[in-house]
Amino acid sequence: MSDLFTLSVLMGIIVSGIRLATPYLFAAIGETFAQTSGVLNLGVEGIMLMGAFSGFYIASTTGSLWLGLLTAAVVGILMGLLMALVSVTLQAEQGISGIGLSLFGLGLSSLLFEKTIVSVVAISGFQPIRIPILGNIPYIGDALFDHSILVYAAFLLVPLSIYVLNHTPIGLKIRAVGQNPQAADSLGISVAKIRYLTVSFGGMMAGIAGASLSLALIDLFQENMTNGMGYIAVALVYFGGWNPLGVLGGSLLFSFVNAFQLWLQVKGVQIPSNIALMMPYVLTIVALAFAANRARQPTALDKPFERGES
């Protein structure tokens, strides 16, 4: 067991942890926008699956990865709009409609898979791009600057979303709508419009998150290939305290533990594989229980808005 923690092993875990964080980052940052505006979208899982399938299908039939990615984004937006219709316009219970959307995505993606692709085949996905100069730094270059375009995009999303949420008029509106929709409404801000916008943006990000699996990380599509990642992404938003930086920390922590347990299994360390598989999830629950910072929680989260006597 002396070679358990050599430098190269550690680097390996970091590289794969960063890769694995990608879908969580896309989905959780998108969900952060939706939740900040007051909509809890539990349908992320289903949207990811549809994104993964549609992206893969279009990419494998047309041969264009970019077209596949675009399709996944569009499918994500459409499913986000569906969620917004049900939860914002029709004011349905958000948790329940989200679960419905997840099951819908799971069923539809499986059905379409059986009718179109049938068997599991791999494609050649987005390839790693080594960034000049930075990529040549020993260790750090391999860990941080030799990834596919989607990995870079996911990480760039973090500072971008911090800027948008905190320093732009639209970000101010999103926060206001999630904290006090009546106040926003009284200033002529359309609560519904903002929520449609954030939920469909969240949908788009979830679609891309799915595509990042089927087009960049695993390079194939399987039924239920997300296997709960969408729900973890929702949990990461709580974990991160509705702050993109916190979401980044949570995503990285979760994926590092995941990478670590994968490596343990590959190494043949004597622990049952089920226990190893559980590790990241157990960690998430424990971390959620302790780290929950409710101070930033949008007051109007999960509450449909109706203009009326206040």
């Binding site: 101010l172 926060r175 206001a176 904290q179 006090n180 009546q182 106040a183 926003a184 009284s186 200033l187 930033r296 007051t299 206040s310």
Partner: peptide, 11 residues
């Protein structure tokens, strides 16, 4: 000016 103020406390 509404009876219940239309302000966002976290801002």
């Amino acid at each position: 000016i509404h009876q219940h103020f239309m302000l966002v406390p976290s801002l």
